[in-house]
Design a protein around this nucleic acid. Structure first.
Lengths: 124, 124
DNA sequence: CTAAGACATGAAGATATGTTCATGCAAGCG
DNA sequence: CGCTTGCATGAACATATCTTCATGTCTTAG
């Protein structure tokens, strides 16, 4: 159970109360899984459908080992799930929440990027 | 608006095509701004309304310097904006996208956490 | 059992990141 | 102008993170 952020079992979240440290840590941990290009691409690929580690490695242009390490991380966070199929292991997004979070993250991130296109090298 | 119902206020977002490396980097960069407890708490506080650096530092229990550093980062990413008001500088979320992304991130993160509560210490 | 394929894991090294410390810059006050 | 308040900035240190290398485990085949 997450302390400090109970938003009711009615499925409706009233007003997103302020983030306490525990909640912030929890959210940060999950978000960090989406905060790196490699994992983002892995998830992006998985969003289109299940794939084996080899396929993932090929899709994201990474070493098999690196992919495995990231998959382990994603698995521990409950973002993906892998099942054996013969000698391969087929990974897929854990549920629709992952896909949604991914979509929304991309969506907002793009918009935010547009709003801050050249803000980075603006007059400091 | 209700988080979790999807962000499609306009109802149509282009088919989230596969993430290429450039897009992944961009999204990852933005998401990384939300991937740490400190920044998450700063944004969480800002989500409730504007605040000066001092107020933020007090709210999130951080040194003023640390807050400033993080604000600089958030500002460069276009997530927050600060304007002078006397000796203080009042910060606020740049626009509703930030608030939305924040809400949705929290929402999904919580759900995902619930699904993976004890996955971390599973039979290993 | 031996051999090969597919994936996982541990250790190590290079980077990146976040906080702190000391200091600089800006604004208000007398 | 000098002093105080409020914030920003740079350097440094501790930590976390990601990738690579070598090796282990599990599965299928003969």
């Amino acid at each position: 159970m997450l302390p400090g952020m109970g938003h009711g079992a009615d499925g409706r979240k009233p007003t997103p109360s302020r983030l306490d440290l525990a909640a912030a840590k929890s959210v940060a941990t999950t978000l960090q899984a989406l905060a790196t290009p490699s994992r983002l691409m892995i998830l992006g690929r998985l969003r289109e459908g299940s794939a084996t580690v080899g396929e993932l490695a090929d899709a994201v242009q990474m070493e098999q080992s690196a992919v495995s390490h990231q998959l382990r991380l994603l698995r521990n966070l409950g973002l993906v799930d892998g099942v054996r199929q013969g000698r391969s292991i087929v990974y897929s997004l854990y549920d629709s929440h992952v896909a949604q979070l991914l979509d929304e993250a991309v969506y907002h991130a793009e918009h935010l990027r547009l709003g801050a296109t050249d803000r980075e090298s603006a007059t400091g």
